[in-house]
Design a protein around this nucleic acid. Structure first.
Length: 357
DNA sequence: GCTCATGATTGACG
DNA sequence: CGTCAATCATGAGC
């Protein structure tokens, strides 16, 4: 600042005439001088910059540069305004929100009320929660990575923006930099970082989808029950053949014993009733096995009524359409029908079938 | 690879 | 809401 004015340095560059010299120098010369500045030492450059700023041609050059700038700014603006239609970004945002990734889970920005209701609109099926803990752990891992990356990008964007802004401000002392130009530059930076963020969001979405298909949709994958579970279910089924509709409690007990869920028990009984009714012949053997079993050890808490205890004499009386293994069962079924309450809800169907025997 | 068995899903019904 | 009936999708045996 207060350095003694020493305008005339050794000036090693012969092509560089002293600041004040004769006219006739065109803008090309001045530009060359500007270019030459970069080759000089800092101190030297400062001096030259100062000299240039004092050059009498400088205002003219500056205005020319401004003019050119104006044109290019206009040109660029036309191209720039397009921007990216944020439709895709919005889609990604929505999806991340729906999957619960966008919520940082530690600090509820919008307030706790949000988290309560909007569990997952298109998202997690909330039943069988067997592997959900695992799923949630993985999901929260993804969420963490997502947020830390997002934070990193935002930080980098901020830093880069201030850096560029400072640079432009510095440069504005030697060349025309319009405020709107700086704004535009900031806009460009932001849009670049937005593109990166979009990629991050995209890959996060992909990760979530993969996770979902691996875990939640895996429930669609059929796994045969263990032999033990099947035995438990069959024992109950055949020992309650006249009324194979386990109560909620019984279902829970069966689920516990078989190591499966209550809804799986319900599914199993639903399937079993239908399939048994459709093709009883096929189940005769199974029926005798389990009825024999349950005769031996009556483990069922519900109190097996031994209604199906008769040895099977296939095809004797039953015209084959009913869930009875023998004519004897018909009697027993009728007896039990008399003593049993009709099955919950619409047990009538099954009872009707029995009675028809 | 085909076939059958079987758990899960879906839509209708009461 | 529980059940039935049809159907889908996969596992298992051959």
């Amino acid at each position: 600042m207060d350095a003694p004015p020493r305008p005339a340095l050794p000036s090693p560059a012969p092509s560089l005439p002293p600041p004040g010299p004769p006219p006739g120098h065109d803008t090309g010369d001045v530009l060359q001088q500007i270019m030459a500045i970069t080759d000089q030492s800092l101190e030297e450059a400062q001096a030259r910059k100062h000299a240039l700023n004092c050059h009498r041609m400088k205002p003219a050059l500056f205005s020319v540069l401004c003019e050119i700038k104006e044109k290019t700014v206009l040109n660029i603006r036309g191209v720039q305004e397009e921007g990216l239609p944020d439709a895709q970004l919005m889609r990604l945002d929505n999806m991340l929100l729906a999957e619960g990734v966008s919520r940082p889970e530690k600090r509820a920005r919008g307030g706790p009320a949000v988290a309560a209701g909007t569990a997952t609109p298109g998202g997690c099926p909330n039943d069988n929660s067997l592997e959900h803990s695992d799923y949630r752990a993985k999901l929260s891992q993804i969420r963490q990575i997502y947020h830390s990356e997002l934070e990193k990008y935002e930080q980098a964007c901020r830093e880069f923006t201030t850096h560029v802004t400072n640079l432009l401000q510095e440069q504005s002392r030697t060349r025309p930099v319009l405020p709107e130009e700086m704004e535009r530059m900031v806009g460009v930076i932001h849009s670049k970082f937005r593109a990166i963020q979009m990629q991050l969001k995209q890959s996060t979405c992909e990760a979530v989808m993969t996770l979902r298909s691996r875990f939640l949709d895996a429930r669609r994958k059929r796994r045969n029950f263990s032999k033990h579970a099947t035995e438990v279910l069959n024992e109950y089924f055949y020992s309650h053949l006249s009324n194979p509709y386990p109560s909620e409690e019984a279902k829970q007990e069966l689920a516990r014993k078989g190591g499966i869920t209550v809804s799986q028990v319900s599914n199993w009984f639903g399937n079993k009733r239908i399939r048994y009714k459709k093709n009883m012949g096929k189940f005769q053997e199974e029926a005798t096995i389990y009825t024999a079993n349950t005769e031996g050890n009556t483990t069922e808490a519900g109190g097996p009524r031994s209604q199906a205890s008769c040895p099977s004499t296939p095809g004797s009386g039953s015209s084959g359409h009913f869930p009875l293994t023998s004519a004897g069962d018909a009697l027993i079924s009728l007896q039990t029908l008399a003593s049993l309450q009709p099955a919950p809800g619409r047990g009538g169907v099954w009872s009707q079938v029995s009675v028809r025997a």
